[in-house]
Write a protein that binds this DNA or RNA. Structure first.
Lengths: 343, 343
DNA sequence: ATGAAAGCGCTAACAT
DNA sequence: ATGTTAGCGCTTTCAT
């Protein structure tokens, strides 16, 4: 492994000049630059990240802290952030904030803040859908490094996320505008609300939108699940099986639950969209396959935006510590249409 | 940010002793250890990863190189590796080996090997389902760091993966033992074989198993797709729609394709398992929901095993540079049963 | 524009 | 068992 000294000798300059050249600093003559680059190339020299970090105080590495390492939303945020960072020459180190109640989860969580995140391995953090205590938020900020959140707001932190209420409002208005008036809802169960109180926010928006349209909110039309397909299936079975109500439309707080609902409808002999319109939120990859109408959000873009904000802040730009609402879009497919005369 | 010197002063020892103590070295008296730990705690001292790395030559960080950052298999391998590494006090840095043909993919790929992986940010690598050229494998080994592969073999490298042939054999034998004799197959399309030639291997095993059982291999019973649900759906539509063949069982090279096939069967009015038995490979999380019989593999465990092997090698243990086949298991659910007299 | 040299904060011989 | 000290490989003033 060639070191900077070798390159300097071969190029006939000092190590300082090599350092400047490879760091892309301006104050190097084109001729010197060429010689240095040639020498570096010939020796196959690549700067040592550790030595550079120690000397400069910058690691060129970003940490991403996530409550789940799998899952549609999380993996896409990761991919988006990675793409942007990689293009900027940054690496991405993953930290799992264990929010389960598995053995040792609480201790692992404490250690993450007390030790792991403090070892100066990264220049900045991306926090994805983290439900942190005030103490933890303070610990995060006490690291003295830029932090940007994705998915859900965090006080004192720049955050980037979907406006849940607006998205749900759009989904609900869509079926209302189609002429539906008996509209059911599958939301996130509060106790299973891993995803940042998203369930509660979306449900409230559903109810508010109905009221604004002069429709009544009926408890029997509302159910909740855990954001999974399986959960959506069960909840829909309950909702659609109840003979005392007859919804013609179903608004789900996530696409995965909506897909489960699609299956439940089939199993109950209800044809979508003839007998029932279904709309979800997310823009899940599989939605196309299911012909699911949805309010799409773009988690990959959210990851990108977070990384860009971080990069700007690391470049010394002031970044507003406020919330930024990401774009979302109604994608109409085959699962929704105007209510049909029943057969 | 307290440094080691402060801790040494507070504890009344040298920095060397502080270093030894916090590194968990044996040669420290319990009393000294206690004093040092108390001092470190009081000052909120955590070693600087960069300084420690530069001085010791060890980063306590592992790199994981993956062709996809999303996807059922990949994210689980990541999660498993992360869990094991985190418990050992290691961090995990993610590198995306872009194998797509998007703009700049080829160049990004070249740079990954030429620069990114060479900056000494990690002590070792986990390579997940990587189809590398011989040159790239050499570049990887030239880094002089332990490498272990997951999913697919890599010459000269310790690898951990499913025995695709054995898994497919088991799936096929399962339906044969149930009494099926007209057995269709949806494999991975060779040109879409992102997953390490898995498609070809599994298909060959399907055919061999049929022959061993004295059954004929019929081209018309074989189709292929891209390992997705959508692809499985389309392929199954073709297979089941062809009036010249009448398979009573369908063996798929992945669970996602099998789920697509389940939907296709429904749409064609074929009841599973009465009219058609379906079995997949993977043990996908959604399989339970679909009642899908499958040969389950455990990618999270594979990630764990890879990390453990790496950790052992970093501890100086010799690790055999050979292939290790991971366990798999037939999980029988509602999608398979003996062929029924047709209605 | 370039060079000399002083660290960055820690670890690991080596010495005791 | 503990202390002394020389680096680890760079970056960055400060000179020139």
């Amino acid at each position: 492994m060639a070191k900077i000294q070798k390159v300097a000798e071969l190029a006939g300059v000092s190590t300082a000049t090599v350092s400047r050249t490879l760091a892309g600093k301006a104050s190097v003559t084109p001729e010197t630059r060429a010689r240095v680059e040639a020498a570096a190339k010939e020796l196959g020299y690549v700067v040592s990240a550790t030595a550079s970090s120690l000397a400069s105080g910058r690691t060129r590495n970003v940490g991403i802290v996530m409550p789940f390492l799998t899952g549609w939303f999380f993996t896409r945020v990761l991919a988006g952030a990675h793409a942007t960072l990689a293009d900027a020459g940054y690496d991405l180190t993953v930290y799992h904030l264990d929010m389960s109640d598995a053995t040792g989860a609480a201790e692992r969580r404490k250690r993450l803040f007390a030790e792991v995140l403090r070892r100066k391995r990264v220049d900045a953090f991306i926090a994805v859908s983290l439900e942190l205590t005030d103490g933890e938020i303070d610990e995060l900020h006490a690291l003295g490094k830029p932090v940007v959140g994705v998915g859900g707001e965090m006080k004192g932190t720049r955050t980037i996320s979907l406006d849940d209420a607006a998205a749900m409002r759009l989904a609900t208005q869509h079926v209302i505008s189609l002429g539906h008036s008996v509209i059911a809802h599958i939301g996130g169960a509060p106790e299973l609300d891993r995803d940042f109180r998203i369930g509660a926010g979306r449900r409230a928006a559903y109810e508010a939108t109905l009221r604004e349209a002069g429709l009544v909110v009926d408890e029997r039309l509302v159910s909740s699940a855990d954001f999974t397909m399986d959960g959506g299936y069960r909840a829909a079975l309950q909702l659609l099986g109840d003979p005392s109500v007859a919804p013609t439309a179903l608004v789900c707080a996530s696409d995965e639950m909506a897909m489960g609902a699609l299956l439940a409808a089939r199993d109950l002999g209800r044809e979508v969209p003839h007998d029932l319109s279904v709309v979800g939120i997310d823009g899940h990859t599989l939605g196309e396959f299911w012909g699911l109408t949805t309010v799409a959000q773009y988690p990959e873009d959210q990851g990108r935006l977070a990384a860009e904000a971080l990069l700007r802040e690391l470049d010394g730009d002031e970044v507003a510590k406020e919330h930024f609402s990401v774009p979302f879009k109604l994608v109409v497919r085959r699962s929704t249409r105007a209510p049909q005369p029943q057969r």
